[in-house]
């Protein structure tokens, strides 16, 4: 038996909207630790890892570890029927082939339940090793989204370079070249407006902008995005989910063969 109740139901909606463009079908894993997911995009270039810790739920019951295969666009269709202020409960029986989503309005005067068929998904679980990153950039998530969107009108790839100068985003296209440099800026009124750059070693990596733009669909989850870079490692683009966990996107770089 699985029963998860989240008063701030809009979080589920935001999580789904953040990952559904990248991944079609995924196994949601439920254990005493929390509700999690790991999935790759269809071309196996990017990976998404979600964790919603059990402590973040108002009610969390998971009698035994359970993995539920779901189609994310079907799930998103059902979650679209939930109001932004609704309380969302996810229920499933052990060994069952359906999952139930229950939406309660804050005043309890409207209660809906949606039953969705589960699917069997043969997905590969990858071990993500702990790594020391050469550079970690924290910046406003809206600023990062703006940069990715702007650069993708000019080129297909972005070179992200971190040096003493700051973090530089470069693209090239048929019409020309674009460079955007963000310098460390901690003297702002609000911490969520700061750009903070930790650099152990200079780093420069090339990525497909198409994926970066897809990651920025998770922007409503957090005011801040953390970009961790190491030469010859996938970049990690992380959106923290307040008091609950995170959505992390890993993207393999473009490399010289």
């Amino acid at each position: 038996m699985l029963e998860l109740r989240l008063v701030q139901g809009s979080l589920f909606k935001k999580v789904l909207d953040g990952i559904k463009d990248l991944v079609n079908d995924a196994n949601f894993d439920c254990s005493s630790t929390g509700f999690s997911l790991q999935a790759m995009d269809s071309s196996h270039v990017a990976l998404v890892a979600l964790l919603l810790r059990s402590e973040g739920f108002e009610h969390y019951r998971c009698d035994r570890n359970i993995s539920m295969g779901m189609n994310l666009s079907n799930m998103a269709k059902m979650f679209k029927c939930a109001g932004n202020d609704d309380i969302i409960t996810i229920k499933a029986d052990d060994g069952g082939d359906t999952v139930t989503f229950m939406f309660e309005s804050p005043t309890q005067d409207k209660i809906s339940d949606f039953e969705m068929k589960l699917m069997s998904i043969d997905s590969e679980h990858l071990g993500i090793p702990e790594a020391e990153y050469h550079a970690i950039v924290k910046m406003p998530s809206s600023e990062f989204a703006r940069i990715c969107r702007d650069l993708s009108t000019i080129g297909d790839t972005v070179v992200i370079s971190v040096s003493k100068e700051g973090v530089k985003f470069t693209t090239k296209g048929d019409i020309g070249i674009a460079n955007i440099v963000c310098r460390q800026n901690t003297s702002v009124d609000k911490p969520e407006e700061a750009t903070v750059i930790e650099m152990n070693e200079p780093v420069s990596l090339t990525f497909a902008l198409r994926y970066m733009n897809s990651f920025t669909k998770a922007t409503p989850l957090s005011n801040i995005v953390t970009i961790s870079l190491s030469n010859e490692l996938p970049v990690v683009v992380e959106y923290k989910i307040a008091e609950m966990g995170y959505v992390r996107f890993y993207l393999a770089p473009k490399i010289e063969e």
């Binding site: 196996h44 270039v45 990976l47 071990g127 090793p129 890993y250 490399i255 010289e256 063969e257």
Partner: peptide, 14 residues
């Protein structure tokens, strides 16, 4: 010219 690496190059099946 650069080619797109895949995730499996870095992360192994667990």
């Amino acid at each position: 010219l650069k080619s797109q690496a895949r995730i499996a190059r870095y992360f192994r099946s667990s």
